[in-house]
Simulated scan of single mutants.
Amino acid sequence: MRILICTYSTASDIFATIPLAWALRSAGHEVLYAGGGDGMRECAKAGFPFVDLAPDVDLTEPFRRRAEQTNNSGQLVWYRGGVIEEPDVTSAVELFGELSDLVAPGAVSLARRWQPELVVSTDIQGSGPLVASLLSVPLVPISHLFALVPDMVERLRNVMAATYAEYGIAGVPPVVQPVRTTPLSMNPQRSSHLLMRHIPYNGSHLEVGSLPDWLLQEPRRRRVLLTLGTFVPKYGGLAVLPDLMEQLSAVDAEFVLALGDVDQAQIPPVPSNVRIEGWLPLNAVLGSCSAVVHHGGSGTTLAALCAGVPQIILAHGADQHFNAHAVATRGLGVATDKTRLTAELITETLASSELAKIAVEVREEIDAMPAPREIAARLEAIVE
């Protein structure tokens, strides 16, 4: 069957869907990605064709406008304190609805021409439910966020009411089977979602090429990965580095600083126990690590959970504060900020047998979740 996957062009949204797309393709189905923006090229790097639904539309403008309205120079922030409050949900849904409306014309045109028999969509991308309703085909919304909002699809439909009316869409998909990739113990929110094991896919190895020798060797001492993701470094996140280097030099560990595609001139001199790397697939590194320090993005948090390593999270924006709270509450990591990331805190995290024990527990919980191939078989059944 033909399967259309609708997503945003951000790495975290695309990467979350790739394992299921692989499972569906391996089962013999035709998979096509749809979204807007240059980031959709990540689909091609993973082996899938894609269609840019809005090649001439500035999809960053809604973010900039809201940041200006809130006097925020970086990321928008939701769910501080680990609580999903209605004003935050409303704010997020309004943003997602506006972004979805921008790609809606392209999504409708593509769906009418390509005629998919199943639509898979991240649950925060409203173009998926729109075209599934238009064609009256089953919809599978995937939630890859710890801040799970069970009725996200319905909320987006409501804020996109004018777009639905424009295309004369009054019905709903015949089947809606939501899927979630986050383990229940990290957010016990009950819903009708099928659980699907998160398989870490953190991007194509094309940028890396052959894995470096140091990564294939046993570390001489404990290794700690430090990453700020793809978004934070662009919005002042590198300002933490000078003070951080002084703290890292006092820790008996080897640090891998993975900063992606940033201007090397912005990186301060580093101590001898810090290795500077550009972009690295996190899942290729985390297996050799004893801990990870990161910004709290959902993809990075899930990759660390799958590796079973303790986490120190320096949340910056978006839903990262919620993720940090979930990690700390579950007992497998620490939520802090840049001013409190000290050599002592890192040393204590590395020494904590309790953090390590619970990190392994959650890894085993994830390992026991149904694999993407099992979910692919379930999805085949709902179309037949």
Rank of each mutant, 00 (worst) to 15 (best):
P188A: 14
V179H: 01
A162M: 05
R220K: 12
S127D: 04
E166Y: 15
E117L: 08
M152C: 02
D123Y: 07
L211Q: 11
I169N: 12
L225I: 03
E117D: 14
G126I: 06
L206I: 12
A165F: 02
E117C: 01
G171W: 05
P173I: 04
P178H: 03
Q217R: 12
G203Y: 11
V175I: 08
G209R: 04
Q125I: 11
H144G: 14
P188E: 11
V208T: 12
R220Y: 07
P212L: 10
L216T: 15
L216N: 11
Y164Q: 05
F231K: 11
L118Y: 00
A147D: 02
V176N: 06
R221Q: 12
G237I: 06
I124D: 05
P200E: 03
D123E: 13
G126D: 09
Q125A: 11
V179N: 03
R190A: 14
G168S: 05
G209Y: 00
T181K: 10
S127A: 15
H205Q: 15
H198C: 00
P200Q: 00
L211K: 13
P233S: 07
T122K: 09
L195G: 05
L225W: 07
V179M: 03
L139T: 00
N158V: 11
P200R: 00
I199R: 12
Y164S: 03
R220W: 05
V232M: 09
P129Y: 07
D213Q: 10
V131D: 07
T181G: 05
P200Y: 00
T182A: 10
Q177V: 01
P174L: 12
P141N: 13
L130A: 08
R190I: 12
R221M: 14
P178L: 06
L145G: 04
P242F: 03
Y167S: 00
A170F: 09
T181P: 04
L195Y: 02
V232H: 07
H193F: 15
E166T: 14
P150E: 03
T163I: 05
R221L: 03
D151F: 07
R222K: 15
G237Q: 07
V176Y: 01
P138Y: 05
M160W: 02
V175H: 08
I124R: 04
P174Q: 09
R221N: 09
Q189K: 10
P129C: 01
S192C: 04
L215V: 02
S136W: 10
G168K: 05
L194P: 02
T122I: 13
V120T: 14
V172W: 08
S192L: 10
Q189I: 15
V240L: 15
T163E: 12
M152N: 05
P200K: 00
V175K: 01
V153K: 06
M152K: 06
L148W: 00
V140F: 02
G171E: 14
N187V: 01
L244E: 05
V137W: 07
K234G: 12
G237H: 10
N202Q: 13
A161W: 13
P138L: 08
Q125N: 14
N202F: 11
A170D: 12
P212F: 03
L184G: 01
H193W: 10
L211A: 15
L139M: 01
R157Q: 09
V140K: 00
T227F: 03
S192D: 14
D151P: 02
